[in-house]
Every structure is written in C-alpha cells, then in structure tokens.
C-alpha cells in the first residue's frame, strides 16, 4: 500500500496542519510517512501546499507528479492540481471557494461546502478539518478516530480551546458523504 495525498490552498487555511495531522496519524498507526511542504517565498494569502506519502513499506520519493488524492482549498489550487490527480484518484474540492467542477471521468470528485460548514461551526479556519473528514470518508486511508487522537496529541497549545470544534468539523466533513 502506498498513497500520496496533496493538500493545497491559501496560506492561513490550515493546509500544512491538515497534512501534518494525517502524517501524525499514519505514524501512530505504525505506517511509514513523509510530509513535505512547498517552502517558496510564500506568505499569508499566497498559495501553499504539502504532500503526504503514506505506505506500509519504506518510502522512496516524497514527491510525485500525480498524487492519488488531492484536497484543494481554493480556485488556484483546483486549476493547478485537478489535471494532475492520478487516474482513479480522489479530488476533494472546497466548493465554497471553487465554483468550477471537474469534467474528468477517471477520478472520484467530491465537492464539500467546507468554508460554509466551518462558518456555521463558528470559525472558517475549521474548513481544513471539514475537508479532511470528507476525504477520509471517501477514501478511508485511516479511521477518523486516529485523526482525533492525533489532534489530541498535536494541536498546538495556543489552539487547545479549539479541540472540540476541530473534531466537530471532522465529523461534519464525514457527514457530507454519509448523509443521504
């Protein structure tokens, strides 16, 4: 088993943290994992992305051209990565900020009104967890409780008061796919 998972959006949307959380959960599950950020001269509001590779054997390259899973938080990320998702892959789109839909027939396309859902939960910054919850429901790489445990262990001290809302956001993302 080897899966590459790309997270891409504006700086400040929690793109890097969502990827790190997946990486922590994978490590805690005994899997091999790499997390690599874009580290160009980006700043808040610029584009940022990270790539997480998870495997049950040693990982060679931490970079790939065609990730199997892409979670895009904004329009520019959609335009850049929608054509690159591997055939048979999963594309999760924040439909609050991306009005366009994929016309590709060879991938699973999931649209989640993530920023809107996060806003209803009280903080638009929770959109990253909504998208992660939806992605892991569409493709269960790791169970959601594993992500919750990673949140317990690794949510930064200054965001500790947001632990419960983060978990609610994960569940809300999952619900988008499970609700009829």
């Amino acid at each position: 088993m080897k899966v590459e998972c790309l997270f891409s959006g504006f700086g400040g949307q929690g793109v890097m943290f969502a990827g790190q959380l997946l990486a922590y959960a994978a490590m805690d599950a005994g899997l091999d994992v790499t997390w690599i950020p874009s580290y160009g001269p980006e700043m808040r509001g610029g584009t940022a992305h990270c790539l997480v590779v998870i495997a049950d054997h040693p990982i060679g390259s931490p970079v790939v051209m065609h990730p199997q899973v892409a979670i895009v938080f904004n329009g520019p990320s959609f335009d850049k990565y929608e054509p690159l998702v591997a055939a048979g892959g999963l594309l999760v789109v924040n439909s609050s900020l991306v009005p366009r839909s994929s016309t590709r027939a060879n991938l699973t396309h999931v649209r989640v009104d993530a920023t809107q859902i996060a806003s209803q939960l009280g903080d638009t910054h929770l959109a990253n967890m909504v998208l992660l919850g939806a992605a892991l429901t569409a493709r269960p790489l790791l169970p959601l409780p594993a992500i919750e445990r990673a949140l317990d262990a690794h949510l930064p001290e200054r965001h500790r008061h947001l632990l419960a809302p983060n978990k609610q956001a994960l569940a809300a993302g999952a619900e988008v796919l499970t609700s009829p």
């Binding site: 790190q20 994992v33 790499t34 997390w35 690599i36 931490p62």
Partner: peptide
Amino acid sequence: DGQVGQMMEP
C-alpha cells in the same frame, strides 16, 4: 539539500 531540511518523517 533543502528537501531533507524541510521534510518531516518519523
């Protein structure tokens, strides 16, 4: 190189 410096791994 920069990739080894920036990458996270267990």
